[in-house]
Design a protein around this nucleic acid. Structure first.
Lengths: 214, 214
DNA sequence: TAGATTGTTAATCGATTAACAATC
DNA sequence: TAGATTGTTAATCGATTAACAATC
């Protein structure tokens, strides 16, 4: 499948935010918007909005602006939100539970099938509407159900082992809450990884807080 | 307090990762490292490492490299990790609980005092070693204890109200798990905000996953 | 048609990488 | 001293912003 042109990651990372604003404008009953007005509401430049959207084609109309329902549909198409990826969550501790119950996977293009944990304390329980199964049967489950993505919420000390096992099952899509650097460990493999580094975020905040102290 | 020179945010965001690698190398018993070797281990260029570190002064030594314990100390000093900010967590639902129990605030420059929630189901409980108090007494508590930072884990529908209240208490440092855009709502105020947009991260992953599908 | 606003190219700005003199 | 490696300047690369012709 030939890519016409690789779109830069900073552009991609802005798409979910565009999508959020578009949805909320539609909820307000607004039908169309100009890049200028959207830029003011979002706190960025009109030029950037037009550049970003034009990476994927011309969704707007000169003299009119952007139709919001077209825009919403187009962004959903770019992100592929309607095509659900079969997913498991590994590690049903505090973070795993929170992710399970708070995130609406369906509307983001993922189908969360089951959670897995090795602790007898949580196996058998239901978190966020998903059954927690024993890690013992994770491999079998993934093979039988053609699982394509994993959310990894295990403690850091188990991260490498768990992730390497998932890789051996052919899983290439990772929402990684651990500090194990999957892409760094496998530069050769073609993987899709999003790391959620909460600790790094908090440390960055500590720096920013220092800056506003007088 | 005159800033010699404003350091770019991308540099700051790399510091926690440097810190992590430095700590882990020290745990391996390594004492010094060259920018070249560190660059290979971290998957970036030696040039970038030297540039980044030199924003804050010369921690290295020609012909020798960087002493890891010096480096660790210097990064901790830059991030101000030893100076703990008094902090409250608001919203003791799933995410709040997970954050409370998983994050080591002390080692990241924060002192988490208490959690707050308005639901009688959780008020009085202890999460991650922190007592959950009734939101009714939040304002009083913040004033009495000179609270400087808040972790906001309330549902999106309550986000604006909760955050505006925290702002009115003089809180300027936010670790924000909601979708309310604090900086956008208060462009005039000098705030330190780190947003944790889990939904955006997941949608970005959906795009990246599309790219590796054949 | 005239006014508005996009799509797109060109200019600017900032961040990363390369190069090398300084120096341990 | 010679070798290694930093600190720092210059070159490159990429991302953002500005400008404007195209066009609805």
């Amino acid at each position: 499948m030939a890519k016409i042109q690789m779109v830069a990651l900073p552009v991609i990372r802005r798409l979910p935010r565009y999508y959020r604003f578009v949805c909320s404008l539609m909820a307000e009953g607004i039908e169309r918007i100009s890049s200028k007005e959207l830029s003011e509401r979002m706190g960025l430049t009109a030029s950037q909005i037009r550049q970003d959207l034009n990476c994927f084609g011309g969704f707007g109309q000169q003299g009119y602006g952007y139709n919001l329902s077209v825009l919403k549909e187009e962004i959903a198409k770019i992100l592929n939100l309607d095509n659900k990826i079969k997913t498991v969550l590994v590690g049903a501790g505090n973070i795993g539970k929170a992710v399970c119950s708070r995130i609406d996977f369906e509307s983001r293009g993922f189908e969360l099938l089951k959670a897995f944990d090795k602790s007898p304390d949580v196996v058998g329980k239901v978190i966020g509407g998903k059954e927690v199964l024993d890690s013992e049967i994770l491999n079998q489950f993934c093979k039988e159900n053609d699982v394509k993505a994993a959310i990894v919420c295990v403690p850091d000390k188990n991260a490498e082992e768990v992730i390497e096992n998932l890789l051996s099952l052919g899983i290439k899509v990772f929402w990684n809450y651990t500090q194990y650097d999957i892409a760094l460990a496998h530069p050769d493999k073609n993987l899709a990884v999003e790391n959620v580094h909460l600790n790094d975020s908090l440390m960055t905040l500590r720096y920013l807080a220092k800056e506003i102290e007088e």
